[in-house]
Design a protein around this nucleic acid. Structure first.
Lengths: 342, 342
DNA sequence: TTGAAAGCGGTACCAA
DNA sequence: TTGGTACCGCTTTCAA
């Protein structure tokens, strides 16, 4: 099959017996065109199988209908879900996203941004940046392209930012356990360099204090995200602090590991609250990026970050910025939900 | 900060004291330009902070440097990884990816393809399509845009396709268990409607037969991807077939569930081979989408599908198709690897 | 080696 | 309500 000669508005105009400007007007729905003409044009479009070339369209001045997205790590379920949400929302509006995976370093990010600017995007979203905002903002502003950041923790001060409410999530989780009767609640997982973790630990800590419960720094255990390591750390924690009755896990992997640790220690988790089991059994709470509905065999209370909704919200936000250039940059926070596996 | 007037090649030409054509030549490295002129132009570019508008560039005839990618489900680790690999490879060449998430229905997919064609992409990749190829191929061919499919199983006959070698993966896994001394090997998980599963079960089955081992249809258990369900199914399976000494799990969730099932049945898995444990313990093998290095606490043999490599391969393939239009469409298969957690 | 000018496919302003 | 036409930013002959 040979490549068909591309059909342009000129062809359409010719077939419809009108001028190119008329075709353009019909296409964009602007200007008042008579129904009859509109009809004729549309028929010609149909007949010729014409598809409008957006590159050319945006060249003259219009929008490209394209949003650039730079993601740090698409492999992480959180960002995958966020990306899915964003593209879904944008596609529903007939827009598209350019996907780039961003480097960690500022200049890498800058070069990615330039690629997007080069392509004439209407707006840019950077997901998972960490405190390298000002140059980027400047560059984008220079081009008149709105820039929005999305991340897991609050890094940037000066920019338009969307992020999950890690503190609230941790508070919710902690409070849930407290309501269940737990008083000695420990923390397992995450690296101390993680800002997300810092915020979560903050929420955990503040809730303990709020309820007048003890907060020991030895009860906050660092641990890399490996089941094996988590299981070991769990064992060690319980051995040195046998009275701990609940543990909050930094993520799903830690949670699985913690559970294995419990099994080995013969202290399987139960959702039953401390009053029934005294402190024989240990309850588990954990953070999850997405609805971990597959992990349904563990009696764990999950605090899920609504990554998909964040994607939707991002779509709204960037479109606002694009349409009304006077929208103030600011921070926006998305709340977590509690999910109890039954 | 006010939006700086965009700088074009005209500005550059003006500053450098040359014509726009010269600037264009310098930019694209074509035509023989004197070092001195090149120097001057580059300085002007630097000074003005000029970035070339690719839209305009591709409008005139060149390539856009953009590949369209339609993914069925970015949320699945397999496709997330594949997407990451693809964008990584493409970005390294200065190209970019348009990301769309594709619907299941043929016409949805077709409209997505049109969006991409509208934007003037150089090529299109559809990941996770299932047997709706011909119209799509036609449409793309009409526009002269190469189209490549990537999926988890072999659906399409007529198109350029890349997919993992599910059979080989299953054969490898099964053979590994057989070499370990297992003779009664069961299968757990997946829905019978899944083509991927069908291929894997085929590999499992053929290997059993090849080694003269028994193949019972009751040993092939369907199960949805839930830990709880998998644990229950595992228990039931072992109760009615106590001599089974190894189980191959359809994915990581099933594997975790299966392991819980083993624990409850007191038949924890070991990698030790049947000769040591007789059939007291049950060995576990499983398929995983990515290197599940986080799942390091279970003695499970994993067959991992190299999703990332598939992304790289896809990048190569589409670029070949773009550069040499005479490349024959065909099927390409990517092998799995065995990973033993130590 | 460099410059002038004609597009690429549309849009948008101004006339008609 | 339509048509004419000057662009958008860049590439690419064709001359100079």
């Amino acid at each position: 099959m040979s490549v068909a000669k591309k059909v342009t508005i000129n062809d359409v105009a010719l077939v419809a017996g009108v001028s190119v400007s008329t075709v353009s007007l019909v296409l964009s729905g602007k200007g008042r065109i008579s129904p009859a003409t509109g009809q004729r044009v549309n028929e010609a479009v149909e007949q010729l199988g014409f598809v409008r070339n957006r590159q050319a369209a945006s060249l003259r001045g219009g929008q490209s209908g394209v949003i650039g997205l730079i993601v740090r790590d698409l492999t992480s379920p959180f960002y995958a879900e966020l990306t899915a949400g964003l593209t879904e929302a944008l596609e529903a509006q007939g827009r598209m996203v350019f996907l780039l995976h961003g480097g960690r370093e500022a200049d890498q990010l800058l070069s990615r941004l330039d690629m997007l600017l080069t392509q004439g995007v209407d707006g840019v979203i950077i997901a998972g940046a960490s405190g390298v905002g000002s140059e980027l903002c400047e560059r984008a502003a220079q081009k008149g392209v709105p820039l929005v950041f999305a991340s897991r923790a609050s890094y940037l001060d000066e920019a338009d930012t969307l992020r999950p409410d890690n503190m609230q999530a941790a508070q919710m989780l902690t409070e849930h356990l407290i309501r269940r009767g737990h008083q000695k609640i420990a923390w397992l997982g995450g690296k101390s360099s993680s800002l997300t973790r810092a915020e979560r630990v903050g929420g955990y800590c503040s809730t303990l204090i709020k309820y007048g419960l003890p907060f020991h720094s030895e009860w906050v255990v660092e641990c890399e995200s490996s089941q094996k390591k988590a299981a070991e750390a769990m064992g060690a924690l319980l051995r040195s602090n046998p009275t701990i009755s609940a543990v909050i896990c930094y993520n799903d992997i830690i949670a699985m590991g913690a559970w294995f640790g419990l099994i080995r220690a013969g202290r399987q988790s139960g959702e039953g609250g401390v009053e029934t089991f005294f402190d024989q059994q240990v309850a588990l709470g954990a953070f999850a990026d997405v609805g971990e509905n597959a992990l349904d065999d563990l009696p764990i209370v999950w605090a899920t970050t609504p990554a998909r909704e964040m994607g939707y919200t991002l779509a709204d936000r960037i479109m606002q910025r694009i349409e009304k250039s006077d929208v103030q940059a600011g921070h926006q926070i998305v709340s977590a939900r509690l999910v109890t596996v039954k």
